[in-house]
Amino acid sequence: MFEARITQGSVLKKLVEALKELVTEGNFDVSSTGLTLQAMDSSHVCLVSLTLRDDGFDHYRCDRNMAMGIHFGNLSKILKCAGNEDTITLKAEDNADTLTLMFESANQDRISDFDLKLMSIESEHLGIPDQDYSAEIKMPSAEYQRIVRDLTSIGDTVLISATKEGIKFSTSGDVGTANITLRHNTTPEKPEEQTIIDLKEPVALTFALRYLNNFSKATPLAPQVKLSLTKDLPIFVEYQVGDLGNVRFFLAPKIDD
């Protein structure tokens, strides 16, 4: 038996909206410690890793580890039927072929349930090592979203360079070139409006803007985003989802032929 209840159902709605374009399908791996998902995009250049901890839910029970194969487009259709203020409960029997989603309105006067057909998905699990990065940048998630959106209108790839001067995003395309530099800025009173650059050594890497732009669909989930960079390694883009867990994106760099 698996059961997970979250009063703030809108978080689940936002999570699925953030992932559904990047990842068509994947396994929700549930265990006594929580729910995780690891999935690649269809071209296998980026990896999404979602972790929702058991204690982040208002109620959580999982008697047996299960991999529930989810089609995210279909899950999104069902979650669109939940109100933003609804409490959402996910339920599945052991070895079930459906996941039940129950929506309860805030004043308990409307209760609905939907069964999502589960899929059987073969997936390879990748080990993501904890590592020290050359540069770590925490910035407002809305700022990240704006930068990648603006640059996507100019070019296809972005060179991200972190130096002691700050972090520079550069692109070029048919219309011309663009450079946006962010500097370390801890003056805003609110921590979520600060930009914090932790630089161990300068690093410069090129990435496809299409994916970085796609990651920013997670903006409604968190006020801040963290970018981590090391030479020749994937960029790591992380959104903390309150006390519930996190969404992590890894994107392979563009390298010279």
Binding site: V45, L47, L126, P129, A252
Partner: peptide, 13 residues
């Protein structure tokens, strides 16, 4: 420029 599979950067577990 080219991009290699993200799987190449991580180990299978």
């Amino acid at each position: 420029m080219k991009q290699i599979s993200i799987g190449a950067y991580f180990t299978s577990s």
